[in-house]
């Protein structure tokens, strides 16, 4: 099983959202990282057939998805970012509706929906109207509906939005359990979610796939470029203007800054192991700003 994107381009007017995106995915979990407006949602919509690319094609098992639209949709599970449920449907009724749309027969559908509602922790409130659900419960319901048809391809756009830390841990476990023989692509701003579950991470910036690799590989890109130093508050302010700061916390002796820089930012700065968050900031520093790293304090 493979999903391949070949030279996918998409523009809205003069704005090029995606520029010749090409990659291939095998079963596993893929985290798509990108800033707001980097084209993640557009890319997902193109993969799902909800949006027409200007150029390029999406191939599932080496066949264009347009030529196998219904077959492709029958193996697809999609959780979009922004949508509103039918507030007067119960959770169970909504699941049964989606099950009918996904072609499950009534008996199998009910069994599957009840299992999934239990699986995402909504078994006790399955008959409650969705308008009474919290944001997290709605998000879990959204995750459950993607699983109804036991999809081979799962596309999850910001799946952890609205989930509390406990729910996020549960979601990550859930994804790990599902990843075998499936292609799962998720986008999120919460880097730690991707870091802990994704087999591979794809970084999308300005419509271009900047890089891809395991978290370890990607983090290696900035090995030796992450520093930590204890400075006074005044110095911290000055450093913030000149360097990419990935963290700032107060300490009894001053301020501890975590800095991403090719050069040692202060004589007292110590190298620390980079994290995916540092990498994210490195790639998505504001406006692609180049910091003045020529002078050290």
């Amino acid at each position: 099983m493979n999903l391949r994107l070949e030279k996918i381009s998409k523009s809205y007017g003069s704005v090029h959202v995606l520029k010749e995106i090409t990659f291939e995915l095998k079963p596993g979990i893929y985290g798509l990282l990108g800033a707001n407006g980097s084209g993640k949602t557009t890319l997902f919509r193109i993969i799902c057939g909800l949006l027409q690319a200007d150029n390029g094609q999406v191939l599932f098992n080496n066949q264009d998805i347009k030529e196998q639209a219904e077959n492709f949709r029958s193996v697809l599970g999609f959780l979009p970012q922004d949508f509103n449920y039918y507030p007067d449907f119960s959770g169970l009724k909504f699941m049964l509706y989606i099950a009918a749309l996904k072609g499950l027969n009534s008996r199998a559908a009910k069994k599957r929906c009840l299992e999934l509602l239990d699986f995402v922790g909504l078994g006790d409130v399955k008959n409650k109207k969705i308008r009474q659900y919290s944001g997290g419960m709605k998000q879990r319901l959204g995750i459950a509906q993607t699983l109804i048809n036991d999809p081979e391809i799962m596309i999850l756009d910001e799946p952890t939005v609205g989930l509390d830390p406990k729910e996020r841990v549960r979601f990550r476990k859930l994804l790990s359990n599902l990843s075998r023989d499936r292609i799962i692509i998720l986008s999120t701003h919460i880097v730690s979610d991707v870091e802990s579950v994704a087999d591979e991470i794809l970084i999308l910036k300005d419509g271009i796939l900047q890089t891809r690799g395991t978290a370890y590989d990607l983090v290696s890109e900035i090995k030796g470029q992450v520093w930590e130093c204890l400075v006074s508050p005044n110095e911290a302010d000055k450093l913030e203007n000149r360097f990419l700061i990935s963290n700032r916390r107060n300490d009894s002796g001053g301020v501890i800054l975590k800095i991403v820089s090719t050069q040692r930012p202060t004589p007292t700065a110590n190298q620390v192991p980079p994290t995916l968050e540092d990498l994210y900031l490195y790639y998505f520093r504001e406006g692609g700003q180049d910091y003045d790293e020529t002078n050290t304090i």
Partner: peptide, 12 residues
């Protein structure tokens, strides 16, 4: 409701 993106990515 933006539900088309869920409905139209199902089999039927």
């Amino acid at each position: 409701r933006n539900m088309n993106q869920i409905l139209f990515t199902t089999k039927y």
